[in-house]
Amino acid sequence: MYGGGNTFEHIKSNGLENEDPEKLAQFEARIERGEKIEPNDWMPQLYRKQLIRMIEQHAHSEIIGALPEGTWITRAPGFKRKLALMAKVQDEVGHAQLLYSAAETLGKSREQMIDDLINGKSKYSNIFNYPAFTWADSCFISWLVDAGAIVNQLANARGSYGPYCRALDRICAEESFHLKYGHHCVIHMATGTEKQREMMQAAINRWWPPMMHFFGPSDKISVHSEILMRWKVKMGSNDDMRNQFLDMYVPKIWELGFTIPDENLRKNEVTGRWEYTEPDWEEFKRVINGDGPCNKERLAVRRTAEERGRWVREALLAPKTEYVAPLA
């Protein structure tokens, strides 16, 4: 879930009855004290399993997320935007590299993770199953989808697993530049011609429902695992993350003179929480399960890249290969 994690897969059995109670108590005490868990430390199987799943989904979201924006590199308007977009999408692929490495510290190889992505066994952020029709869609993604990701990632950077937290610290620093770039692109559209404003508004209208889905199902229908919160694997509820995003970005969208396609959207000044029309969770489930506008295309691109690149990876593993060290 692009750093959200565990929002649609429930724990069937926690398996804690098989863990050594003494070690488990020490482990929980360390987390309680705010210590980080490192790869060689003792950890319960459930912790390991949930973290692999979460970091892996996050990594997949980064490489699949490179695709809708990547298609805009060759068509980006002008040198300035093109160079910035290239660097931004490159960052996303770099994030995947960092995250796969973090997940590998828990015992699952990058190859296994990518196989599971291609076979549909593991998920990625739902929002990348929607198409970026226009340049304005690409601006929306760079500003607001990245903003949503930062909300999730900043929360998770305070989690308990050391390698994931450190990867997230680096990722958040880079994402903050993406956010500035995206905001700048949207401001440019907002202050441009009538046609540019219309394009941007149309993109906001298109992307708002998936943006609301981005943080995962409502707390009302999503069963929280108290244990994952206690172990600092999951750092906030889906509704909390969504509320934080709305609080930070709805005023900024309105400030630019755009509307948001939800007539019930308003901040309740008494509770301090945002009210909105309940997102269509049936659509969310349908898209997650493979029936979105671009699911097949996204996985097909990834599958093709893997198949066409196999000979290169095999050549690197060839026993007779003589490796050549760089000169500098």
Partner: peptide
């Protein structure tokens, strides 16, 4: 730049993207 997201391994996506940025 067309190799971004499509390389034979992630490291090569990143390398080709760097070279694309330099060239442009």
């Amino acid at each position: 730049s067309e190799w971004t997201g499509f390389g034979p391994l992630l490291e090569e996506d990143i390398a080709f993207s760097s070279m694309a940025q330099d060239k442009v």
